[in-house]
Design a protein around this nucleic acid. Structure first.
Lengths: 99, 99
DNA sequence: CCCGGTTATAGCATCGGTGCTATGGCCTGG
DNA sequence: CCAGGCCATAGCACCGATGCTATAACCGGG
């Protein structure tokens, strides 16, 4: 994740346009969720294949998701949560304090 | 909808088939999120058109969303949250208790 | 009675996530 | 060296959410 990747390019471009931060935040969410799933999965000692099987998908789908390759949809998140035996919480919370 | 088939019927039916609860939960999430957005919007005294404008979408999209007509995607939720000046929280939480 | 504002719904095009198969690289154990 | 398990990626078809315009229903005030 260094400056040589297209990541920073994309981010800067998106941050440049006003009101484009949402897409960036969504991508960020995807990445964090992927990392979270990976943690939960590894904590259980499962392989991607096992989790995929439990969640009704294939290993490639799990890999893509954990890599943050796409912003996941709520049904998929729900299935993963169910497979990992955790609860998926999606809610609007009052903003902390920032600008 | 409330003529012969009731909500609880639908729920029970879906809960009956194994592995179908995810889709049901996703739909439920869509509905709850739609209601939540409606609350936040009305609390600000905004019209669907105003919110749509602020969120970079059209009134019809907001209406569809509030009606729970489709399971929203994370980018859309992020934009709505930003327009409503709230934070969108999506996370996996340890399950309270089995059911 | 018409008009402006608001919400709901339909129809349609497009974009993107999902699901799948297949493959390659990597490491470990036999 | 070879076999097997694990992960990453590519390519593709399909489905569904999104975005749009247009329209209907409703209600308020002029």
């Amino acid at each position: 994740m260094s400056e040589t990747t297209t990541w920073s390019e994309l981010r800067d471009r998106r941050l440049a346009e006003p009101g484009a931060t949402e897409a960036y935040n969504a991508a960020r969410l995807a990445f964090e969720l992927g990392a979270g799933v990976r943690e939960l999965r590894e904590a259980r000692g499962w392989s991607q294949t096992q989790l995929a099987n439990a969640a009704g998908m294939t290993q490639s789908a799990v890999a893509r998701f954990e890599a943050g390759g796409a912003v996941p949809t709520l049904p998929v998140l729900e299935r993963l949560a169910q497979a990992l035996d955790v609860e998926l919480a999606v809610r609007f919370t009052p903003k902390p304090m920032a600008a």
